[in-house]
Amino acid sequence: MSPHTPPGPPPVTPAPFPGGEQGAGTHILADLVGASRLDDPAHAETVLRDCAQAAGALLLYVHVHHFGRGGGVSGVAVLAESHISVHSWPEYQFAAVDLFMCGAAEPNKAIPVLQAGFQPERIIAQELVRGRGALIPTPGDYGPELPAGWPLDPADPLSLQAADLTER
């Protein structure tokens, strides 16, 4: 690292997940239904900052855009471990939140902060392991060779094939 390179997080090492899976990080998709204060950009920024702190993540930058009177917000907290984003529709009392983090950060610890900050009637959440097999290949993953009978045409440059995704 040169003296001009800002310090950053350590390189990503595969994190163990339930069931023995390994991946780059955890991505929680949270839908806030019946939520409030979704049109207040200063409040959204505070909630993003509090989520990062609760998750044990290193906050690098926050930006929130307000879509005007009566409109919602779109905001992102850029983290050393990835990001937290919020997109709100106050007219529907709905917000979509992404919490994606790697390393030792724990995005699930931000859920109570979302609950307290936006007071939704309910939160519908999905948790995904991102980078599964990307850092440590697992048996059954497709490498450059696709399985026989794969339905994509290798002669078609628009076909999405595992072998050529890095060449585009």
Score class of each variant (00 low, 15 high):
M1S: 15
S2R: 14
S2M: 01
P9C: 05
P10T: 00
V12H: 01
A15S: 11
A15L: 12
P18I: 04
G20Q: 01
G20R: 08
E21I: 06
I28A: 06
A30R: 02
A30E: 08
D31Y: 10
S36V: 15
D39L: 08
A42L: 14
H43E: 10
A44W: 10
E45V: 01
L48E: 12
D50G: 02
Q53G: 05
A55H: 09
G56V: 12
Y61G: 00
Y61V: 01
V62G: 03
V64I: 07
H66F: 13
G71I: 00
V73T: 13
V73N: 08
S74H: 12
S74Y: 08
G75V: 06
V78R: 08
A80D: 03
S85G: 09
V86I: 15
S88Q: 05
S88T: 15
A96D: 12
A96S: 13
V97W: 13
L99V: 09
C102M: 06
C102G: 15
C102L: 02
A105D: 09
P107C: 13
P107N: 08
N108I: 01
I111S: 02
P112F: 10
G117D: 01
P120L: 11
E121K: 12
R122N: 06
I123F: 09
I123Q: 02
I124V: 14
I124D: 11
I124L: 14
E127D: 07
E127H: 04
L128F: 14
V129Q: 04
G131K: 11
A134W: 04
A134D: 13
I136P: 00
G143D: 10
E145Q: 14
P147R: 11
A148W: 15
G149C: 08
W150N: 15
A155V: 03
D156Q: 06
D156V: 14
L158S: 14
S159N: 10
Q161K: 10
A162C: 07
A162P: 00
L165I: 13
T166S: 03
R168I: 10
R168Y: 05
